[in-house]
C-alpha cells in the first residue's frame, strides 16, 4: 500500500521521539494499544501548572501510519492548553495525513493516547491535591 507523502515524512523524520520522566508530577503518560494489529503507542505530555502542554514525547511500535499519527499529534499538542489538546480528533489526524480507511485506527490510537496522557496528568494532580490537603494535618502535632 502506498503511504502518503506526509506519512512518509513523519515516519522518516519523526518528531519528538523519546521519553519524559514518568515520575514527574507534571508529566502525563498515555499508553494505548490496538489488539487488532498489535500496535503500541506511548505519548507523554509535560503540562505546566496553568495547563499548557510544554513538551511532548512519544514512542510507537507499529506501522508507518501509527508512527506518523503519533509524531503529528506530538507536534500539534505543544503550546496548546489541555482543553484544546482534548479536542483533537482522529478525523483531523487522518485528514492531515491522508490515511486510507484501513489505517484510520492508527489515528484513533493517537487520539486515545492524547486523552489517556491528559487523564493520567489530571489524576496525578488530583492525588497530589488530595495529599496536600491531608498532609499538613498529619504532620502538625495537635495544637494545644
Amino acid at each position: 500500500m502506498a503511504y502518503s507523502e506526509k506519512v512518509i515524512e513523519h515516519y522518516e523524520n519523526s518528531r519528538n521521539v523519546g521519553t519524559l520522566d514518568k515520575e514527574d508530577p507534571n508529566v502525563g503518560t498515555g499508553l494505548v494499544g490496538a489488539p487488532a494489529c498489535g500496535d503500541l503507542m506511548r505519548l507523554q505530555l509535560k503540562i505546566s501548572d496553568d495547563g499548557i502542554v510544554q513538551d511532548a514525547k512519544f514512542k510507537t511500535y507499529g506501522c508507518g501510519s501509527a508512527i506518523a499519527s503519533s509524531s503529528l499529534v506530538s507536534e500539534w499538542v505543544k503550546g496548546k492548553s489541555v482543553d484544546e489538546a482534548q479536542t483533537i480528533t482522529n478525523k483531523e489526524i487522518a485528514r492531515e495525513l491522508s490515511l486510507p480507511p484501513v489505517k484510520i485506527h492508527c489515528s484513533v490510537l493517537a487520539e486515545d493516547a492524547i486523552k489517556a496522557a491528559i487523564k493520567d496528568f489530571q489524576e496525578k494532580r488530583a492525588k497530589r491535591q488530595a495529599q496536600a490537603v491531608v498532609a499538613p494535618k498529619a504532620e502538625t502535632p495537635a495544637q494545644p
Binding site: 499508553l31 494505548v32 490496538a34 489488539p35 487488532a36 511500535y61
Partner: peptide, 15 residues
C-alpha cells in the same frame, strides 16, 4: 471494546 480489553499492566509489559 476489543481495545479496552487489554489491561494497562500488560501494555506496560509489552512496551
Amino acid at each position: 471494546a476489543a481495545r479496552a480489553a487489554m489491561p494497562m499492566a500488560f501494555l506496560e509489559e509489552v512496551m
